[in-house]
Structures are given as C-alpha cells and as structure tokens.
Nucleic acid binder design. Structure first.
Lengths: 196, 196
DNA sequence: GTGTTTACCGAACATTCGGTCAGTTGACAA
DNA sequence: TTGTCAACTGACCGAATGTTCGGTAAACAC
C-alpha cells in the first residue's frame, strides 16, 4: 500500500459550508432558511456551523461578494472599456452570462437581495454601480448609432440585462448548454431579433 | 350643511389589508416580513389584522391568485388560441406585459415564490401550467417558420418570458411609460432586434 | 502514554415569530 | 339613555429563531 496522501480529518470547512448554505438559500430563500435547515443539509448539528463560520449573515455577505467581485473584475477588463461601444456591449453581455453560469448560485442569491440588512444594502449599492456602468455603455452604443434609436437607452439597458439576469430563474448546468451557446442565443434574440 | 355622504367608520377592510401586505411583502420578501411589520405599515396592532384576514399565509394565497387569475383569463381569450402562432405569441406577450403592469405587486410576488409551503407549491403548479401554454405557442410559431430556426423553441420561451418577467424588477407606474409603450419596446427588441 | 488540537454535540439562551382571546372604544339606532 | 356591533387593543401563548457554551471523542504530536 502506498502512503495515504495526508488523510484529512473528514469534515467541513468554511468553503464547503458556504457552498451548501448558498444552495439552501437559493432553494428556500435567505429569510426562509433556518440554521437548522443548513445543519440538516450539511449532516451536522446547528452548533457545528458556528465552528466554521461566524453566522448566517456572514454566509450571505461572502456569497454576495463572490458574485459582485466577478462582475467588477469583468468590467475592469480592457475589452469593456475600449473599442466600439456596440462591441464592448456585446462582450459585456457575453461575459455577464459566463459569470452568471460560472457562479450561478452566488449570482442567483445576489439578484434576490432586497436590502433588508446593512449587508444586503451594501450588495445592492455595488450592484447599482455595476448597473450604472452598463447603462452608460448602452448610451454610448446609442450615441454612436449602433442600436435602434426608437427605444430609450435606459429602457434598452433594463430589458437587455433583465433578459441576462432571468437566466438564473431556470438555468441548470447539467441540462442547459454551455455559457457560450447560451450567450450566443441571447445575443441573437436581443441584437438581431427572433422574427425571420 | 348637506347631509354627510355616509361617513365611513374609518378603518381597514380585507382589501386594504391585502394591498398593504403585498406592498410590504415585495419590499422585504414574504419570509422577511413579520405580522408586526404589516401592523406598523397599517398603523394598527398585530391583532387588528386578524380581525380582517385569517392569517399571513392567506394573504399570500389571495395575492398569488390575483396574479394567476389574470394570466389564465388572458390565455383563455380567442386571440391566444386562434390565428397564426406568431401573432398569437405577440398578443400574449403584449397582454402579459399589460397584466404585469396592471397587477404589478401581485405578479411581482408570484415571480418570487419558491415553493416553501403548500400555498406556494400550488401557485408554482399553476404558474408552470401557464409556462407550458406559452412554451407550446413558441413551438407552434417555430413550426410555422415564423421565428428563427437556429435557437431552440424552449430556449426562446425562457429568454422571451424572462425578459417580460424581469420588468417587475424595475418598473414603477409613476415614472415608466404605459404598458403599451413598454410592450412595444420589448417586442421591438426581442422580435426585430436592437442592432440597426 | 500524555498533551493538544480539530471538529463536533447537546442543552440552553434571549428574542422573535404567527396567532389567540377577553376586553374596550366609539359610532350609530331605537 | 340605552343597547348593539364593528373595529380594534393589550396581554399573552407555544413554537421557532440565531447564537453561545461547556463538554467530548478522535486524530495527531511528542
């Protein structure tokens, strides 16, 4: 027998608790989830959770940061900030879909936050900052004449990213196609239209 | 002095309690709302609420029915069941936006339900039935060759109604345009595309 | 073996939850 | 003036909530 590669004590850690928690939060809603629910999902008692993480709200905060960090890293990229606005917009939409798929549970949680606590308020503030970025991008695309002028840019932004965000309502990594295929289909509909 | 036009006792009734409740449910989430929160919003004590309505879950049930009834009445209309599929689809999208705007708080609540209780499960079941109707409609439009063949009908359905439903995330009756204008813009984007 | 650390349990904590109920208030009718 | 009744209040209930804490079994270090 080869030497065991450092047998772990077999248990949970902050990361695995977070992953499980976000799963349950998305099933039942954050407020609809009790620490007892989390404990059951993890196969331990309530108190074991507090050994790994400081509490329920910290779990939420960490999850929300994970979603928001992804979005902000993305819009810091050069492809989001230079070039023709319509191409930057297309890239940002494509990457938004990718992040949404890569970090599905975290983004799903983010999109359901209503500002009930300082933690949620902070996440909402960051999210609104992201929204302002894309809103500005759409305005630029309209100004350069790349998108139809008969719909207000502010409305375009909301409809376009409403479509992107709605993916969290049904996407399942196992069934659905890849993020690239999904983004492609979304861009076909929103940029070129469904009608033949 | 003219006779007083029947001075009302000045108080609440089941309808006003429901309206206020749905407002608070949408602000803080159903699970995040306590009966104490509702009482504060109504300017009465908790127990006064129980004089008008049987309880918290009944408020939710009535609100969800109000949204679902609107949707089902709509798809029972002749314009949803006869004619070219693409025109029926356009009509259903347009009416969905109208119902969403007319019954905004109720539809908003419906779209956030996750099935935590039998009441929510029942609403989810009805909603899925509605989804099947529109899903079938999109398939018919694809079969008659009215929509682009390079995106799966199931995916088109989800993206299209994801866009419609996302309106609840930002629409404010005071600011936004009418339901007709909104539906028009949405159809321009999804049917004909944003790109010039 | 002895001591230490890791990962957990079980019981308890104060608080909040949805809901109940006996009583009070004030408008109105007779 | 008296009685009725709709509309409420305030005190309270048992259950559930998030969190704390003393203890403990097993793995590891020496």
């Amino acid at each position: 027998m080869a030497t065991q590669p450092r047998q772990r004590k077999r248990g949970h850690d902050p990361e695995s608790v977070l992953a499980a928690a976000v799963g349950v939060f998305n099933e039942r809603g954050y407020d609809g989830t009790s620490m007892e629910d989390l404990a059951r999902a993890l196969g331990v008692t309530k108190s074991a959770i507090y050994y790994h993480v400081p509490g329920k709200e910290q779990l939420l905060a960490r999850a929300l940061d994970r979603a928001l960090d992804g979005l902000f890293e993305m819009i810091a990229d050069e492809r989001a900030t230079s070039g023709r606005a319509i191409e930057r917009l297309e890239w940002v939409v494509r990457q938004s879909v990718r992040i949404l798929v890569d970090r599905l549970p975290y983004v799903t949680l983010l999109l359901r936050v209503r500002g009930n606590s300082p933690t949620e308020q902070h996440a909402l503030d960051r999210r609104r900052e992201f929204d302002r970025f894309v809103s500005h991008l759409v305005k630029e695309a309209a100004a350069e004449g790349s998108i139809r002028p008969d719909v207000e840019p502010a409305l375009v932004t909301r409809l376009l990213f409403g479509t992107v965000n709605s993916i969290t309502e049904w996407y399942q990594p196992a069934r659905g196609g890849s993020a690239e295929e999904l983004a492609g289909a979304l861009l076909k509909m929103t940029f070129d239209g469904l009608r033949v």
